[in-house]
């Protein structure tokens, strides 16, 4: 029973990170109908900035804020300079541009910070809680990870559901031409969507860095998990992205704990295929039209 509890807690913690990456992908998918394959690279770049600050003796929190700020700018710049020119072209063009950005970021990070892996500090202790004498595989830092992702999701839901700005972002995403007629500055909102996504990605990067270490191509597997989580959640829903992340995290944790630790990637794809066969639009999709 303790084993099951440990696996669940580990699953929720891992899932929180997948959820954060999935949230970033969902934000961009909602606004521009592009799957941002550069998301892992963007999170890597912002995390390297944070690492640089920590490495030079600045506090964890200052580094985290800097990473989020750099994420906002990087996301906005990527949309304005790279995605905007291919906005009206075939969807594949944007995918290729995103892949190009990924290569560019990885090469740039390699040139600036080198290819070796760097360790990154965790925000809180990583020694597990010990309630009633039971040692749990759940530390204050794990709690911080889950809470951070929950807070990010809550903010996004509040933004989209309950503010005029969020309403405009949704309107612009669903019907850009009509929105323009209504006076909505669609272009700005797309830029904002990318900026927010990259900032959420930056949060994900900082949260995962203590476990994976920081390196130019270190976040590539996270993108695969995040993408799987986003698809499970239906690609369109922030709540779905988080639920998808937690589902995936727990599934992979049970597989690792009860079957074998060697088949994690296999299990991730098995989950993805099962969900796509049973609910092709994901568990949380409200509608069916798709452009890709």
């Amino acid at each position: 029973m303790t084993h099951f509890l440990d696996l669940t807690l580990t699953g929720v913690t891992d899932g929180a990170v997948y959820a954060a990456v999935a949230l970033a992908l969902v934000l961009i998918w909602r606004s521009t109908r592009v799957v941002n394959f550069a998301q892992g690279g963007m999170a890597m770049a912002t995390t390297f900035v944070a690492w640089d600050l920590v490495h030079h003796g600045h506090s964890y929190w200052l580094a985290a804020l800097a990473a989020i700020g750099v994420g906002l700018v990087l996301g906005a710049a990527a949309e304005r300079l790279l995605i905007r020119p291919v906005e009206r072209a075939a969807p594949l063009n944007a995918v290729i541009v995103a892949l190009g950005l990924l290569v560019l970021l990885q090469a740039g990070a390699g040139m600036i910070w080198g290819g070796q892996l760097r360790s990154y500090p965790s925000a809180f202790g990583i020694k597990g809680f010990k309630p009633f004498g039971h040692q749990l595989l759940f530390s204050p830092d794990d709690l911080f990870m889950v809470a951070s992702v929950a807070a990010v999701m809550l903010l996004l839901v509040l933004l989209f559901r309950f503010t005029p700005l969020g309403l405009r972002m949704r309107a612009a995403a669903f019907a850009p031409e009509v929105s323009r007629l209504l006076g909505i500055r669609v272009g700005r909102l797309l830029t904002l969507g990318w900026a927010l996504a990259a900032a959420v990605g930056a949060v994900a990067g900082i949260l995962i860095a203590p476990t994976t270490f920081v390196g130019p191509s270190q976040f590539d597997p996270i993108l695969v998990s995040g993408f799987t989580a986003a698809v499970i959640g239906g690609l369109d829903s922030p709540v779905g992205a988080v639920a998808g992340g937690i589902t995936l995290g727990c599934a992979l944790s049970y597989v690792a704990g009860y079957v074998s630790t060697d088949i994690g990637a296999f299990a991730a794809f098995a989950v993805l295929i099962t969900v796509l066969m049973l609910r092709p639009n994901g568990l949380f999709a409200g509608h069916a039209e798709r452009r890709v």
């Binding site: 509040l158 933004l159 005029p164 309403l167 209504l182 909505i184």
Partner: peptide, 18 residues
């Protein structure tokens, strides 16, 4: 509501922080 862009709008930060 989406049609009311001329209505006074809250700034980005207050909105984001709800």
């Amino acid at each position: 509501m989406a049609g009311a862009v001329r209505a006074p709008r809250a700034g980005f930060l207050p909105t984001l922080l709800a």
